[in-house]
Amino acid sequence: MTAPGDVLLVEDADVHVEFTRLAFESEGLADALAIARDGEEAMAIIADRADRPPRLILLDLKLPGMSGFDVLQAVRSHASEQVRRTPVVVLTTSRAPSDVRRAYDLNANSFLRKPLELPEYFELIGAVRAWWLERVELP
């Protein structure tokens, strides 16, 4: 059902990269996950795979260089319509209402807080992946 690189994780924090990687691994989908450690790398990956863009982007907000909002803006204003339509799930530790509002204003599809506990984290990642890659119909 998933192809390699279908899910792009944009995350600089080791622990969350590792959690997410393990979450995918635990479901036998390790290949599906592409990892960008900052915004520039994410945009480069998207550009590299113009023929087959990611089907889901998991986006951290606090990034070195381009912020998560910058990446979100770049994706939504991307030249490729397919890229522009990619579901973006903001995954962050921030609880600031202003961040929530801003993310939705920039057309994020979801705003989720990262759970502290590993089991909850696995569960959340699993649910998000299943929802956006298996349940939701997209154009």
Binding site: A13, V15, E18, T93, S94, K114, E117, L118
Partner: peptide
Amino acid sequence: SHDLQQPLRTVNGFLQLLELR
């Protein structure tokens, strides 16, 4: 507080990985 969260999550996360895995 915001910035403290990240290192704390790192410690916490890897401790959990250590314990669970």
